[in-house]
Write a protein that binds this DNA or RNA. Structure first.
Lengths: 234, 234
DNA sequence: TGAGATGTTGACTGACCAGTCAATCTATTC
DNA sequence: GAATAGATTGACTGGTCAGTCAACATCTCA
């Protein structure tokens, strides 16, 4: 039931990589840029990007209004930065998982686990990324479509590999499967964000298992019966 | 491959129910309220709710600024109205499908078809509903959570029924399955909205089949082999 | 026909807020 | 300790826009 050893180890470190409260202490005082970013996460999550004022971010961070503009060119850039920071980490993890020689279930399992743990580690950040960025089809969304598309393509690559290996049925277009996989996970996070689903530790763990069970179950070649039981025309 | 006869027939009518360009002609001039709503759909889809001005809606509709406030109390109310109009139709369809004595595949197929056809019939409207409402966790999303939750529960009811009938495995919580089903569909629409996937007639039809194939494939009891091949602890 | 209701107009206002900037503080370097 | 660069401050401004309102138009029905 444990996923890829190596990828998971890297992932654990990655989850804690950002945010001032993690780094802090040691060096000469907190990095104000980081403090502002962390404050922005909380404010965006609480009030929404459009509804909040730049002064709210500054207040939350405990810094003067103008300092936000010392580190960021605009309110938009703050959100952009948050999105790119996290998404880059996710892309890197997918790439890493992709190269390892593992069964698909474990590859997809590692990715699902990472995303779910990202939410568990910092729900506000994931809320902001999903709700404020993914959602903004105009303005923001368009800027970051390339990044999102890249994730899709990596996922599709994993599915194709599994199809070549005979683990997944070849009839279901890999791009489509990748989309379905990501869709289930995003809806899961959305359910948590909207408080439609319980968020205990066991719930997170069960969710990881169920995501894989549903998606892989629908993609794997039918067990027992040699060929596909109900073939679908492409 | 054709889904529920009766439900589909009702659905076809429902798709064309709204929008002035459909009704129009006949009676004494166009209903300005409707004209404003239709214009708002186009403007919201093009510029986004936050980025557009009320005057943009009025201009697009070819009416004076003030008239928007004659029919709607606020800019928000325009969006609310669009969301509720369409979502009510969808809820009604799900309820209808729910009562009919059909195999799950056909029930879920009818629902998936309806949503996909809704997008095909009026992509702008679905874009607005998904991008501006469904995903807006603060503001709008919160207002309509009740409505969205109702859809989830109806879907979960269909899944539970299938579990009682022995068509679906009992181990996968029905609420979770419902969420996965809706997640795949929403991600599909999102892919179209962001132009990440082709939008030909065949693409829409194939999508309907694949959604069911993936989700039901993962939920059905393993074919051939009597009991479940790889049981999952709940 | 005319009186009330309802539809339609668009100029105006008051609040709001992103972004600027000049001043002040702190660190570093020679 | 003077000089330079970077960090930090917060009052201010300029533009934007949701919503108001008083006037005008068009129906409806007795």
């Amino acid at each position: 039931m444990n996923a890829s050893r190596t990828a998971s180890d890297g992932a654990a470190k990655r989850l804690a990589a950002t945010s001032a409260r993690d780094a802090a202490a040691g060096s000469k005082g907190p990095d104000k840029r980081r403090v502002i970013l962390d404050a922005a996460v909380r404010v965006f999550a609480r009030q929404g990007f459009h509804a909040c004022r730049v002064s709210d971010i500054a207040d939350e961070a405990g810094v003067a209004y103008g300092l936000v503009y010392h580190y960021f060119a605009s309110k938009d850039e703050v959100l952009d930065t948050l999105f790119l920071e996290r998404w880059d980490v996710m892309l890197e993890l997918i790439r890493e998982v992709d190269t390892e020689p593992l069964p698909v279930r474990e590859k997809l399992g590692a990715i699902a686990s990472f995303i779910i743990d990202s939410y568990r580690h910092d729900p506000d950040l994931m809320k902001v990324i999903i709700v404020e960025v993914t959602r903004a089809a105009n303005s923001f969304g368009n800027t970051h479509i390339g990044t999102i598309r890249e994730a899709y393509e990596l996922l599709a690559g994993i599915v194709e590999q599994a199809q070549r290996d005979g683990q997944f049925k070849p009839e279901i277009e890999a791009q489509f499967a990748a989309m379905a996989f990501y869709g289930v996970i995003e809806q899961l996070l959305t359910g948590w964000i909207f408080d439609l689903r319980p968020q205990g530790d066991e719930d997170f763990e069960r969710a990881k298992r169920l995501v894989i069970e549903i998606v892989c179950g629908g993609l794997e070649v039918a067990p027992g019966a040699g060929a596909a039981a109900a073939p679908v025309s492409n």
